[in-house]
Every structure is written in structure tokens, then in C-alpha cells.
Design a protein around this nucleic acid. Sequence first.
DNA 1: CTTGACCTTCGAGCATACTCTAAGGTTTAT
DNA 2: ATAAACCTTAGAGTATGCTCGAAGGTCAAG
Lengths: 133, 133
Amino acid sequence: MKISELAKKVGISAHTLRYYEKAGLLSPSQRNQNNYREYTQEDVATTKFILACKESGFSLAETSALLAIKDNKDQHACAEAKLITRNKIEEISQQISQLKNMQTTLIDLEKYCCGGPESAEFCTIISTLEGDS
Amino acid sequence: MKISELAKKVGISAHTLRYYEKAGLLSPSQRNQNNYREYTQEDVATTKFILACKESGFSLAETSALLAIKDNKDQHACAEAKLITRNKIEEISQQISQLKNMQTTLIDLEKYCCGGPESAEFCTIISTLEGDS
DNA sequence: CTTGACCTTCGAGCATACTCTAAGGTTTAT
DNA sequence: ATAAACCTTAGAGTATGCTCGAAGGTCAAG
């Protein structure tokens, strides 16, 4: 199939597919005589794999590493896939805690503010940010 | 004080201070006769305000809006500050849920994988990403 | 034979928040 | 007098993952 057919089938743009190709994630098995990309069912599967990785939070670089394992399973150990996954879990945990800290700070900021049409002269949000503790 | 003294005092680089100036967040009250930036105590306070906003997760654009309130309290209502804060809380909540979803997916991926030196032929991480459900 | 809908490549643009460099001027210490 | 350590500006580079546009080739229908 041609690029826009694949694009439609997996729900992303042809531009993005070409971008993935440039990033080394997905190359169509061949080109036709007009130099148009020709994709196979295997390419569809690979594209879906990429999108599943994205869903799970993997970067394109990590996805690339996972693809290398997928495409050459007998040359790779389970340990590799597990390590990539563990590292990602750790990274996301850290992001979550950072966001939770911000959330706590923000909720503290917000809860004492009257939020009314009054002048912000005594606004607790502003004065807290100013460092009046 | 000059730029690097302020930088040292608040713990960021002079480059960043100039960047904040270009972004409209912080302008030194004056320049000396050599066109060097001269900062006052008020500028120190403003810089700390900016960093407090950053700590809380506000973008530079949001920080800019909060600064406008701070610098002109009687022209602004509490409601404005509260709205900005609420929107940020909402935004961060969404980021947290998205990350938590990823985290759940990743933990599911990881927990069944043996993680051993065996070939990845039957790796549950890879096969799950391949869509074998 | 022309119109519209495809396809190609290369390269720029977006968003965010810096970070750094280059080229040049000033100040301070020895 | 000169070297180190400041300061200035403008603009480029970094990271990520797209997103879009320009210029040109191909193809199918009427």
C-alpha cells in the first residue's frame, strides 16, 4: 500500500510516517517504479508497534531500541527489554512526584484566595509567591 | 548591583536573567553610564517571585501574568490570580493522570517479563507491544 | 489535455526554556 | 601597559516530536 493508505489505516499523517522513517524507526520494504513507498502488512504491524510504544510513554529513541529487539529477537535477551521498561517506569515516577509537589503547592496557594472581584492588594496567591510566609 | 551579583544571589545564571528580560519578565530599574544593568533590591524580589512561580510549575507566560498582577495590585482582582492558579492545577492534574496511565501500562508490561538472559523470542514486553493480547 | 489528487525530497517552523558563542567595550589589579 | 574579569548585543544551538510548505514528478478521470 502507499503512504497515505498506511497513514489512514493507523491514524497518523503521512508526514509523520516519513518523519519516523528519517528517525530510523520504519522503512517501507520497497519502492515502486515511481519511487513511491510501498508498505506491507509487516510495515503496518511495525507502525502499530511504534504507536503502542508511544502510548506507553516511550520516546522515539527508546522505541527504536525496542524495535531492534522485536526485529531480532534471538539476538536479544529479555533483560534488555525489561531494563528499558524499568528505566522508563523510574523516569515517569520521578515526573509524577515532581508534578505532585507542584500540585500540592498550587492547591495551598489556591485554597486561601478569596477569588473575588476585590483588588489583589491582599491576594494570598500573590503574597505567597512574593515570599511573605 | 550588577547582573552577575544578582545571578549569584538568586542562584541562576546571568544569561538566564537576560533571557527573562527579553521575555519581558524582569527589567533592571536602570543602566549605569557604561550601559551595564543596575539592579535594586526590588529587582531581587521580582527575581525571587519569578523563581517561586517556576517552582510552582507556572510557565514564563503565566509568570508574566502573575507579575503584572503583583506589580499593579489595585488594577487587578483576586479572581485573576485564582483563575490562573486553577487552570494550572487542572493542567497538572491532566498531566498526572496521563503519566499514571502510562505507569500502569508499563508496570503491566514489566511484571510478566522474566528479565533473564534468555532470548527475547517469548518476551512478554515485546509481544504485548506487538499487540498479541 | 487539463484538473485534481496523489507522490517525492529538502528544509524551515513551532513550542519551551534556556545555554552558549562571537565580537567588542570596560574595569580592576599588578 | 596589560591581563583577567567583568559587561554589552545579536543570534545560533539544544532537545523532542512533529508539522508544514515549496518545488517538482506521476497518475487517473473526463
